[in-house]
Amino acid sequence: MQETSSLPTGTDEIDLKVLVLALWRQRFVIVAIAVVVTILAVLFAFVSKPIYEAKVSIIPPTQNDIANYNYGRTVENELTPYTVKEVYSVFTRNLTAESLKHEFFNSYYLPSLTESERSGSQDKLYAEFSKLLMVSLVSKESSDRYMVAVQDESAEKGVELVNKYIERASELAKKEIKNDIRSEAQVLARNIHQQIASLRDVGLKDREDSIIKLREALMVAEAIGLERPPIISGSSTVEVAGNLDGQLIYMRGTKALKAEIENLESRSSDDPFIKKLRTLQTRYDFYNSLESSILDVKVYRTDGVVELPDSPIKPLKSLYVLIGLMVGLIFGVLVALIKNHLSSDGIRLFGRGTGAKSV
């Protein structure tokens, strides 16, 4: 009778002790490679140009900052006052607009590049610029607080670009609001001007009508030979002489009627005799001068000032050294294992199980 017992065959297992021994034999190789890679990482960290970041937080203006926008904006003047939220929303819309970024890209970024750098793809250059200039909300909880940051090799230039970018957004916001105020005031001024023109037309027609009435009264007075108004005791002069709406105008007499007709015909303007005209002219002048009365307005505030950064954000030298050390060790271990495997007297890391037969 023959019995066969077998151990697992065809299995390769790494002996940890053997692995450590193999690595120990190649320790100088591992250390040498780790040192070289770390030195290269250090050199790269020190050779790389430092990148500085200038940034500042933007917050809404105060009611006092926008006070001049609300000059004369009352219900009586048919103008609704501006709120801080409305003014700040115009500013933030311009601050985050792609049009402003493109303007800054063409005005500041492209001129700072060399001729060879500008010859590349404009889309690629703009994508790089967008990474350097960032406008974002500080947090979802603070929906009215924005952060403007610029990364540049020059700390001074970064601060300058941040200030210029914010100021340009402010200029565009002020211009937009000023245009809105001008348009609104022009519409109201045109309405007032039309009312003034209508009143003047009515005043001219009234004067022409008065002259016609007075001429007819003069004909009556001349027909009856009435040169001066009669004096009748016990009666009011107004009742006897009458007025332009009455029937006794001729009772004023020819002298008075001729003088009044001559005065009306030589009158250069009817403005002093038109009711409410001066009030409308005052309102018209107010609307026309409304735009020029807007002075010293702020559409935003900065939470602090744009400080000159004293340390770069890139490259992080300590991180580069750590990564270089880790990569060097890993690469050194791989080289050591390969070298051990290829060497004729290398330590075998794998042991193969063999089958045994017994009778």
Rank of each mutant, 00 (worst) to 15 (best):
N243V: 11
Q247L: 05
D201L: 15
E239N: 15
N288C: 08
R252N: 05
I232L: 09
S198E: 07
E208K: 14
L244V: 09
V202S: 10
I211C: 00
M219F: 15
A197C: 00
L214Q: 01
Q186Y: 11
E208D: 12
A221Y: 05
A185L: 11
Q194R: 14
S198K: 13
D270E: 11
A259K: 07
L264E: 01
R228P: 06
Q195P: 01
R252F: 09
A189N: 02
K258G: 02
N263Q: 01
M251G: 13
E222M: 03
R278W: 08
I224A: 01
P229E: 00
R215I: 09
N288Y: 03
Q281M: 13
P229V: 03
E265P: 04
I196D: 00
M251V: 13
S268D: 07
A259F: 06
A256T: 10
L214M: 08
E216T: 15
D271V: 14
A189D: 00
I224E: 00
I274N: 00
E239R: 15
G253M: 13
S236N: 15
I274K: 03
A197L: 00
F273C: 01
P230G: 06
T237F: 11
I232F: 05
F286R: 12
K205F: 07
E239L: 15
L248F: 14
Q195S: 05
L280K: 08
S269Q: 08
S266M: 03
P272I: 09
V187H: 06
R267V: 03
K258W: 04
R283V: 10
M251A: 14
I196N: 02
L280H: 05
A189S: 04
D270V: 15
N191P: 04
P272W: 11
K275G: 08
A221H: 02
N191M: 02
F286Q: 13
A223Y: 15
L188I: 15
N288D: 04
L264C: 06
Q195Y: 04
S289C: 10
V202H: 09
Y250L: 12
S183Q: 14
D209W: 00
A259G: 08
K276G: 00
P229M: 05
V220K: 09
S198N: 09
A221N: 05
D270H: 11
D206M: 05
I192E: 04
L199H: 04
R252D: 02
D270G: 06
I249H: 07
S198D: 04
Y250S: 12
F286M: 12
K213D: 01
L199T: 02
P229K: 07
D285G: 08
L244P: 10
A256G: 00
A197H: 04
N288W: 00
K275I: 07
D285V: 14
L204R: 10
I196V: 08
